Amino acid sequence: MFAKKETQHPCLLFCFYITYYQDTGDNFLGKRSADKDYVGVVAYARGIRTDLINYAPYKHEGTDIYDIIDWISKQPWCNGAVGMLGGSYAGFSQWATAKNVHPALQTIVPQVVVMPGYDTPMENNVQMSLGLYWSNDNIYKNEPIGRGLPFEWFEKGIAWRKLDSLAGYKIKIFQKWLQHPNFDSYGQSMVPAPEEYTKINIPVLTTTGYYDGSQIGAIQYFKLHNKYNKNANHYFVIGPYDHWGGQSSAKSN
Rank of each mutant, 00 (worst) to 15 (best):
H243D: 01
Q106G: 05
Q179S: 10
S33Y: 12
P144G: 07
P203K: 02
K141I: 10
E155V: 12
G131Q: 01
T207R: 15
G47V: 00
G83R: 07
G146W: 09
L224T: 09
F174Y: 06
G213R: 10
Y58T: 14
V126L: 09
V113K: 04
Q127T: 05
T198I: 07
Q247E: 12
L205R: 05
K156S: 08
A232W: 11
K162C: 11
Q8D: 05
K227Y: 15
A56C: 10
V114H: 08
G80T: 11
G146A: 09
W160P: 11
L178H: 04
I173Y: 12
K156I: 02
N124T: 06
Q22C: 06
Y55H: 13
Y169D: 09
I171L: 14
M115F: 07
G87D: 02
F14V: 07
T24V: 10
T7N: 14
Y21T: 13
F222P: 05
P181E: 09
W77H: 06
M1N: 12
A218K: 01
H102S: 01
F16E: 12
E143S: 10
K172L: 11
F16W: 11
P203C: 01
V82H: 03
G239Q: 02
G25N: 06
T206W: 07
L105H: 01
L163G: 03
N226G: 09
P144Y: 09
H234M: 05
D164A: 08
Q8E: 13
A96M: 02
R49D: 11
A45D: 15
Y44L: 03
H9Y: 10
S33C: 13
V126K: 14
N229E: 08
T97R: 03
K172S: 14
F92I: 00
P76Y: 04
Y66V: 04
A81D: 09
N201S: 04
I158Y: 15
I145A: 03
K199N: 15
H180T: 13
M128P: 03
Q111T: 06
I53F: 13
G83T: 00
W95G: 04
I238H: 04
Y221Q: 04
Q75W: 06
K223A: 15
A34Y: 14
N124K: 12
Q75E: 08
A159R: 13
T198A: 15
M122A: 13
K99P: 04
G187F: 00
F222V: 13
A56V: 14
M190F: 06
F92D: 02
H9W: 06
D51I: 00
V126A: 08
F28P: 00
